[in-house]
Amino acid sequence: MTFRLTCPVCGKRDVYEFTFGGQERGPRPAQEGLSAEEHFRWVQFRLIPGGCETREEGASRADVREPLQEEWWYHGQGCGVWFTTTRDPMTNREVEGGGGG
């Protein structure tokens, strides 16, 4: 697997220069009143791009998520910036204008 990513500082670079930082799943939840369940859900759970939000029966096509995901990358062998980009994991292609910066 190989592709290129657009670093907001350095431009299009080989994916070998980057470290994957997982899906964007929002900021770290506040600790006050946070249950262990909620914490581990935030740490461990991932949504499958193109999969269903819910596994309940009768899930309609409307529940099927966008086959794109917003994700974090670290340009470790470059400028050292963490940034988000939107990518289609099926084709490994970045979506035009998906760079979150």
């Binding site: 770290r28 939840p29 506040a30 600790q31 262990a36 914490h39 740490v43």
Partner: peptide
């Protein structure tokens, strides 16, 4: 400390 949102603190508590 519950305001700094220390990495690992919720797990340590659990």
């Amino acid at each position: 400390d519950t305001v700094s949102k220390k990495v690992g603190a919720p797990a340590l508590r659990a």
